[in-house]
Design a protein around this nucleic acid. Sequence first.
DNA 1: TTGTACGCGTTATCAC
DNA 2: GTGATAACGCGTACAA
Lengths: 339, 339
Amino acid sequence: MSRKSSSLTIRDVAQKAGVSPATVSRYLNNSAPVSTEVAQRIQKVMSNLKYVPHAAARQLATQKARAIGVLLTDIDSAFFPPLISGIESIVQQEGYNLLVASRCAGNEVDAQTPIGPHNSDGMIVFPGSLNDSEILKLYQAGFPLVLIYRTAPEGSHIPSVAVWNKRATRELIDHLIEVHHRRRIVFVRGPADNEDSQRREMGYQESLEAHDIAYNPNLIISGEYNRNDAYQAMSKFLKNEHPDFDAVFTGNDDSAIGVMNALYEKGLRIPDDISVVGFDNLELSAFLTPPLTTIHAPTECVGKTAARYLFKLLANQEVDLVTLLSTEIVIRRSCGCSA
Amino acid sequence: MSRKSSSLTIRDVAQKAGVSPATVSRYLNNSAPVSTEVAQRIQKVMSNLKYVPHAAARQLATQKARAIGVLLTDIDSAFFPPLISGIESIVQQEGYNLLVASRCAGNEVDAQTPIGPHNSDGMIVFPGSLNDSEILKLYQAGFPLVLIYRTAPEGSHIPSVAVWNKRATRELIDHLIEVHHRRRIVFVRGPADNEDSQRREMGYQESLEAHDIAYNPNLIISGEYNRNDAYQAMSKFLKNEHPDFDAVFTGNDDSAIGVMNALYEKGLRIPDDISVVGFDNLELSAFLTPPLTTIHAPTECVGKTAARYLFKLLANQEVDLVTLLSTEIVIRRSCGCSA
DNA sequence: TTGTACGCGTTATCAC
DNA sequence: GTGATAACGCGTACAA
């Protein structure tokens, strides 16, 4: 057949170095000892020719892609840079490639995932990108998976990395109630199936209970964890018959931005009229008007940890099934403090 | 040799469908007509078995990776989400994979790039990730490249996508001078070799000249286009013998954040004492304290355009060598306006 | 320590 | 319209 091929192969290197392809391969992968003399000859030829092994050929021979993927829902969020940065640093350190893709679960049934066994050795899964049955299918096929910000589906043993939600949330709401005497606190929840949102809501409820404040479902609105939906939800809430509230806990900082905007348009002052607090501590949160009181979540660390776990999985090492990184309150001005 | 291989191949599909692998391949790639009856049989078997072609094998056979890459310097910046999001949307639409990596040019000589002919069909290059000679080497090897936010090296014909810098900058500085009567305007430049920064500095200088304001090199400081360096630079500037200035033009919005912080710590009020304006219009810029007057740059569109160009290159189609997307002033409050 | 030969999963060429 | 079969570039038993 004789296909023309401009790329140079291990065979070219071998020939120029006067050895066999196998020897070059051995040198390349340290898979067997090579006489120092031969090694030097090979090294010289390789750098002369600027030879780089063909990833696909290697993958086909070794059954390893030397790549891992991360599957997100919406890339265009301030939440992702630290996450991806953390993942990428580990991936690079391991000499792997990083595949990034976005996808929303349930779009089409059986739609093939952009990342999977066909193009990578494992992947990190963000909530919403894959549904439980898709995750289980991949898991049962033996494809290494690490879940972030969500727990593993029933019957699977997939490591997951997330952050402590309830404790810090509880403390934050306590702060609102005890220090700033807020009692009618709106909660802007995230997507209904989002576990972080559920846990944060539990923290919110616990704090209310502890202070004998009745849980009022009318104060719960849905912001979908993004500023636009949060803005809409808050605006709609403000159009209700004289809404009665003195604080807002937004499930994440991005929502807080939308909420603050809606409040501002309505002429409500933060924090004088309404306290606003969030969750995540995005880099920008310190620079909002006013600076946002929130809960710091170690997002880059979640990325690094998830990536490290994935590489452990690839190396058949033990990995903790559930990892929760610690969070802590960051008091700024939007709650009413003067810090 | 007989390796166990859990993955199912085109051969399995062929067998189950009672045809040859070649026929399945033809159906898969529309590379030749297949009788409708056979086609249906294949289709059914494929979805039953959930067969997905192996990317590496395909790559080896076709000499195409079905993947493109984007090479950045620092992923952890608010600038990237829209950029990557734009790129990813096109990549997905084309059925390709997206490789993301970060790298700083000049780290080591001859260090192999994480993205290249060995693992992708082309790549989008961000300034600072590759130096001119690395770019030329790739270009001469026939590797499809699209440059963003920088022009092509001498002697190459590589398409580049960026934004208009000078015109809008000129208008913005005019605004500072004419509307707000500022005359001692600090410019916080980016990395020395950054073309955007150079052009923005030209716009700045043109405006000064047009208003008979002498160019004062003491008012030029280096912020490296990130908030931390900008913060340091501004803090140092403020420690000078009674710095005399009434406005700051930061080369990008991220720097503006650092500058605003430094100013704030010094007790300087924005915009009462000092006007601050930036460039980029990050999503967060509208939410700073005070909201930042800046220049809107269509970052997501740069990403989309660059990706589209790259795919045109892959299809051997003509591509504009230089594309500049339009920018426009966004007046908010940090300049002194009350909008 | 080194070379030979085969297989990884796919596509492309050539016959039928 | 369909089926054999030879590549693609590399890793690796096995033999030497």
